[in-house]
Amino acid sequence: MNFFKNSNLAQAWLVLLLATVFGTALAGIQVKLSPVIEANKTRETMEKIPDLVLDTSMATQTATQDLIIQSRVIEIEKNGITKFYPVYDVQQKNGSLAGHVAKARGQGYADKIEVLIGLDAGGNTITGLFILDQKETPGLGNKIVEKTWRDQFINKLSDTPLIVVKSKTGQPNEIDGISGATISSRSVTGIVNTTIADIRPRLLPIPKTEETE
């Protein structure tokens, strides 16, 4: 029996040796690259924040360093489901509140859509919209990422829910649907409506606990 064990080990020594070598190499890679990967993930959101809260002209002048961005999570309990909204509160260097950016997810036509919604201080008007992640139909549904469509949301008031229409009749809360992608445009609008309704009462005052970021 002992001999059998030994021979098994003897046969597998190469596999074990390779496993050790590769394991060490991967550990090295992990130590070296994981901070970069983590930074990539947060940067993806952080880079967009000035654009979403400030006017375009101001955003180009104001570098990210001039803003103080605090992150927090707003937790909402509704119909037995707990929802989490990561919210970034943006302050100017002089301490005045510039606005908030909320990250929200919802079901789109093909898969989940993840959006960043920019709101002014207190969340009265929408100041910007950005689609972080989507897998909608190329050529149709994925037109939601285009700036011309997203920019319709800017300056919309947040007290009336937005609706998607085929042709505008002049109501202030109308969003032009994308032809051939009614569901995608409606999904995004739905996510915006729900998010604002959920988090607006909780935006102010900003809790003073977290000073990092």
């Binding site: 596999v15 390779l18 496993a19 590769f22 190499a25 991967l26 890679i29 992990q30 690259l33 994981s34 970069v36 990967i37 990539n40 993930k41 993806e44």
Partner: peptide
């Protein structure tokens, strides 16, 4: 084993530099 190790390296590298 060899292939899986190198694929992991390639995957991490892409995630770090071509996010």
């Amino acid at each position: 084993l060899t292939i899986a190790a190198f694929v992991t390296i390639a995957d991490r590298f892409l995630a770090a530099y071509f996010f």
